[in-house]
Design a protein around this nucleic acid. Structure first.
Lengths: 202, 202
DNA sequence: GTCTATAGGTTGATAGAC
DNA sequence: GTCTATCAACCTATAGAC
């Protein structure tokens, strides 16, 4: 039973794809409406402005990802290992179907502007708190500041993978291929878990 | 002996600052010439186009950073430790004065577009090769692909720190402060060295 | 080398017919 | 809800006087 997609959903899907691959500034409303084969005015009818469209695109994807993150963290029980914490943070983003989400999430995390900071505060701060707490429980010897720094490093490694994955095969002569998402997650988890466990030093 | 800066240098300095803080697309030539207090046409006189200006801004900073990276790697002797490798990769970027370079480098690494990929290939591939080789020497048990992935993770953690550092105090309630650059480098090196040393697993 | 003026194109957003 | 037509603002780039 194939259902024709309505204009609003088509705009959201195409915008997500273009924002992720080319950036929010670099993507014009005309790019979006042309590719979605809808009228230019439809964007301002269904959404009020480009900024509101960006909000809607982000909101649609980031909410379920964060829900899944907390689910996985809860499913790991009252004393999750560092590996379980890292996997709960990363897997819901990297392994998610369908594909375009990865480019979008990488773009969000790699756009440190005022506008994105608002989104960041709205959707990510609360999740980051839960994960920082979990790290503190698993590694009580770390200072509060160090825990936050390591969350930051973890987010950075993940964001970089998301943003550059479509270019990696070319840049590494085919040696790195992000198409096997589960394998990428496993590599990241091993690397990050070891980093999280590092002694804090002096 | 204070020397007045010439127009070309003023443009480069202001462009570096704005590109770093707001992005390449989001910064117009008018933004640059207004802040630099020079005429709009001066950009196209001294540089040929906006793209060439971007090239010039990047080139001016990335070349000495990469030189310093290789110097530090060489200075670590024929068998550098993982910590020395990580520090040689990171310190030349993070600890470098003056400040605007950090935002610019973070922006470059966080802009996975065709244009930046060209820059990436021109300036970073050769350095990445040297560092990947060094990692392979220090950790011969890692597969070639895993070495590249871990270089990628390392670059990502660093890029994220560079790009978000000016927003970190606000997002962490003041707990994370990137102004002590040496301390940030030390935190990153400890985290990344442990990650690089992680067993590769099945 | 530095300026004014402007060409030529793109952008986000809207008014108003259907 | 969807369309055409258009506005006002912005952009990069250049021609030509000084």
């Amino acid at each position: 039973m194939i259902e024709r997609m309505d204009t609003k959903s088509k705009i959201l899907d195409v915008a997500e794809n273009l924002f992720g691959n080319y950036g929010f500034e670099a993507t014009s409303l005309r790019d979006i409406t042309a590719k979605a084969q809808v009228n230019l005015a439809a964007v301002n009818y269904h959404f009020q402005s480009k900024d509101s469209l960006i909000d809607a695109v982000i909101e649609r994807r980031i909410a379920p990802v964060n829900r899944r993150r907390l689910e996985m963290l809860d499913a790991a029980g009252p004393n999750p290992t560092v590996e379980q914490i890292a996997e709960a943070f990363i897997a819901p983003v990297i392994e998610r179907d369908p594909s375009p989400i990865t480019a979008l999430m990488g773009r969000i995390l790699s756009t440190p502007d005022q506008f994105i900071t608002r989104v960041f505060k709205k959707h990510l701060v609360v999740v980051a708190q839960r994960f920082t707490d979990a790290i503190g429980q698993a590694l009580p010897e770390l200072s509060p500041a160090e825990r936050l720094w390591r969350m930051h490093f973890m987010g950075g490694a993940m964001a970089h993978v998301l943003g550059w994955s479509h270019l990696l095969p070319e840049l590494t002569g085919g040696l790195c291929d992000a198409s096997d998402r589960k394998a990428v997650t496993a590599r990241l988890v091993r690397f990050l878990a070891a980093g999280l466990r590092a002694p804090e030093g002096n």
